[in-house]
């Protein structure tokens, strides 16, 4: 009696697992997949794309910048960083700028690079503009309160910025090292961690400009 109950439980579990496979299969198939195939990209394809959302911060002219309106329909690379950053920020910015410099005008127009400062205390609009101009004058710089920026970062799935005091009395800002890539469908499908090289950007960016994410 006990034996038959055990074997019935096993059968129930097996049927349940099969049912799960049949049900989850179509659900997985509903995920939006890149037309080029996930292996086509050197960035990390997000399992759950992030929908572009509405927020407004000040740009380097001190004017309100509405993220949705200003970047609609363009491939938008978002990076959280600060201009006193000694390593990750200038490397990401320099590598993206070096690759985009060689793009034909029409292709370059399809991109927006948005740098969101995680250090509003030191990053004045003028300072951000001057710093970004070292890489590419078309790069956009945004500034808001720490709380606003951290809220935006959280909604984009990256950790919030954290101030770290150093011995010299100065401070560093810990922040995400990833660039978030929103594509023309106004969804973020990819992230580019630190270590992404110019050859990787040159490989992925033109593809992102033509990508249509299939349902």
């Amino acid at each position: 009696m006990r034996q038959s109950r055990l074997s019935r439980n096993r059968w129930q579990r097996a049927i349940g697992a099969l049912a799960l496979v049949f049900v989850s299969g179509p659900i997985a198939a509903c995920e939006r997949r890149p037309q080029n195939g996930p292996d086509e990209y050197r960035g990390r394809v997000l399992p759950e794309p992030i929908e572009k959302f509405d927020f407004t911060l000040d740009d380097t002219e001190g004017q309100p910048f509405n993220f949705i309106e200003e970047t609609e329909g363009r491939v938008t690379l978002v990076f959280f960083g600060y201009t006193n950053c000694p390593d990750v920020c200038p490397i990401h910015m320099a590598n993206i700028a070096a690759v985009m410099r060689d793009f034909p005008f029409d292709l370059k127009q399809q991109f927006r690079v948005v740098f969101i400062s995680t250090d509003p205390e030191r990053d004045t609009p003028e300072r951000i503009r001057e710093w970004l101009d070292n890489f590419d004058p078309s790069f956009l710089g945004l500034r808001g309160s720490v709380e606003e920026v951290n809220d935006i970062a959280a909604r984009m799935g990256v950790p919030p910025a954290q101030r770290v005091e150093v011995e010299t009395g100065d401070y560093l800002v810990g922040h995400s090292a990833s660039v978030i890539a929103f594509t023309r469908d106004d969804m973020a499908h990819l992230m580019y961690p630190f270590g992404t090289r110019q050859a990787d950007w040159a490989h992925d960016l033109p593809r992102l400009a033509t990508e249509t994410w299939d349902e």
Partner: peptide, 18 residues
């Protein structure tokens, strides 16, 4: 593109690109 990852991903020194 820069051939050496070591220097491409190194903190930049003013006045140079990789």
């Amino acid at each position: 593109f820069p051939a050496y990852a070591t220097y491409e991903l190194a903190p930049p020194i003013a006045g140079t690109t990789a």
